[in-house]
Design a protein around this nucleic acid. Structure first.
Lengths: 179, 179
DNA sequence: AATTAAATACCGACCGTTCGGTAGGCTGTC
DNA sequence: GACAGCCTACCGAACGGTCGGTATTTAATT
């Protein structure tokens, strides 16, 4: 049996998962390495054995978000209804969005996770745009931006009030072509 | 002549203004009392002469947001077009939203600015809802929530990408009754 | 008009705590 | 015995906040 002292099987995967939860719920700046270590049943030094820095953990978290969110979203092809359902379900179950959280916290800094986050949002936009025809004088890209903005605002509402209403209605709007 | 040591006329009003900019741009957790002091041309002790704590400053900032944003918005009566124009202009000029920023950072904490922020968002929703008729099986309240969510997401997009497109289109949607 | 006491606004220096990060040692497995 | 995995103990810096003291302004008193 492997040496388990804390609550779960330690290692990079667990650290990334717990860090993602903490960054999403409490914010990146407000989450300390000691918080992450405690959530993993380790000490800070134990975390630094697997990751070189706090920012390296954030990068890993965003990479995992690419795999867990944008990947499956891309696999859904060009079906707006399926994309809407997956998106709503994903954010409703996690109760927030790490990307939006860290984007808000680091928006005015040129360094760090900036480029990583830009890539995330633009790829998300392109994925949504590919499933959308042009309509009402809007390009698919601007329609996708508007829908993503609505979703991120709805996720903030969900996180703050615990009310999934705006998020679900955003999903219905995309599925119904009313974006 | 009054004793001016720093860049501007010091005092609670200046502290609130500079703190609002910092909280909005860099986030509440990432803004230190030393940052606020430097932005006002004072020392930390000078700040604590006017405010009891960092959280007291945040409360003052949110009170000022009530006066500067919700107040004028309420004065516009029930004209969706005027409300949309004022809202877009307000957020585009400030480049972000302190309320959304602090809501994201403190959402999972029951204490502190929670109630203050709840009151802000609900009053904002009620103000928008009062200017909106029921339509498409939606109550004015849910239509207002959806529009506010869209605006807040658009403000995030503006802050992160510097692109006011989604915010302006959100304004046009409200003005055109297409929410 | 001059003197003075109180209050205001502010500073430099410092408090205990927490931050991200590091050094070196221990322990179990191959 | 080499190495992964994790520990205790610690570092300098920065955090929110406090303290005693000092210019400056204001108001009352003479």
């Amino acid at each position: 049996m492997s040496s388990v002292r804390g609550g779960g099987t330690a290692g990079p995967a667990l650290i990334l998962e717990r860090s993602c939860d903490l960054f999403r719920d409490r914010g990146y700046a407000d989450t300390s390495m000691a918080d992450i270590a405690a959530a993993c049943g380790l000490t800070k030094a134990g975390i630094y054995h697997h990751f070189a820095s706090k920012e390296a953990i954030l990068e890993g978290v965003l990479n995992q978000l690419d795999r867990d969110f944008l990947g499956p979203l891309a696999d859904l092809g060009r079906d707006p209804g399926a994309m809407a359902a997956f998106t709503v379900s994903f954010f409703e179950h996690s109760g927030g969005c790490v990307a939006a959280q860290t984007a808000m916290e680091t928006a005015r800094r040129a360094d760090g996770p900036r480029r990583r986050l830009e890539a995330f949002f633009l790829r998300w936009r392109d994925l949504v745009a590919a499933a959308l025809p042009a309509a009402a004088g809007q390009t698919p890209a601007t329609r996708a931006e508007d829908w993503i903005a609505r979703v991120e605002g709805a996720v903030l509402w969900l996180k703050f009030f615990g009310d999934p209403g705006p998020l679900r209605r955003a999903g219905e709007a995309l599925a119904g072509g009313k974006v």
